[in-house]
């Protein structure tokens, strides 16, 4: 049933900041249609790893593939990176991203936030895009907010708009960096519910989160990171029932 080519494939990815090694030799395949949660202590490199997937952070070496196609550009053995801006933009258009602090564009209405990239980047006709955007907003329960500006929304609503903005690009994958960490507790549920329904609908999601219950119940795979390395990759149920590594056991307790 699973696609033979992984949606995302990471090969020997390394990232350093000014000589300080933050990610070391990361290899990971993420099958299409699955939800993967990345867990790990603070500073373990989760965000950096996620941002390397769409090259918001340019890897020091190694490669990322989206549907078998190399993301970003070339890195040679000496660690020299050449970025192909145009190809990178094309690939990024297929990778949605949701940020911890929503990152909505404040000068645009909810609807405009959702339609901006499909119109500007994919050059799709405005009419189509607006119809589709309204359908997405309907689906996340925000159709009535289409014409307000982001400042008038609650955190939970903002994050649902941010997810809608990603969905409007019809992405192959959506990356989430702690999508609920900036929310008041009573709003966490509404955002997780959207992600849960996306998981059910077969969207490929990679989620950095501290929501353990969500990771256990919704994700297919858990990736546990510590000290810039992947320490454990396991089916979610297994990981929570019986983590194989000592570090993961300590992290969970």
């Amino acid at each position: 049933m699973a696609d033979p080519i992984p949606a995302i494939s990471v090969k020997r990815l390394c990232k350093e900041f000014d000589g300080h090694e933050v990610l070391r030799d990361i290899d990971l395949d993420i099958p299409a249609g699955t939800t993967t949660c990345i867990l790990g202590p603070s500073g373990s490199g989760k965000s950096t790893f996620l941002r390397c997937l769409n090259w918001l952070e340019i890897p020091s070496s190694g490669a990322v593939f989206l549907d078998g196609r190399r993301v970003g550009g070339e890195t040679n053995a000496a660690g020299k990176v050449t970025v192909n801006r145009r190809e990178l933009a094309e690939t990024r258009a297929k990778i949605g991203m949701v940020f911890q602090h929503f990152a909505l564009w404040r000068h645009l209405t909810v609807l405009q936030n959702v339609t901006e990239a499909p119109i500007q980047v994919l050059k799709r006709p405005r009419q189509d895009v607006e119809t589709q955007a309204m359908a997405i907003l309907e689906q996340v329960g925000l159709a009535d907010k289409a014409h307000v500006y982001p400042h008038a929304l609650s955190g939970g609503q903002k994050q649902r708009v941010a997810i809608s903005r990603a969905l409007a690009m019809k992405p192959k994958v959506i990356l989430f960096d702690e999508p609920t960490s900036a929310l008041d507790p009573e709003m966490v549920g509404e955002v997780l519910a959207v992600m849960r329904s996306l998981a059910k609908g077969g969207m490929t999601q990679v989620i950095v989160t501290h929501e353990m219950a969500f990771a256990r119940d919704v994700s297919d795979t858990v990736v546990f990171m510590d000290g810039g390395q992947i320490r454990e990759v396991a089916p979610a149920k297994e990981f929570f029932a019986a983590p194989k590594t000592e570090r993961a056991r300590r992290f969970l307790s």
Partner: peptide, 9 residues
């Protein structure tokens, strides 16, 4: 970054 992540130049 949100703009760039969407594929905007």
């Amino acid at each position: 970054e949100a703009a760039e992540a969407c594929g905007m130049s």
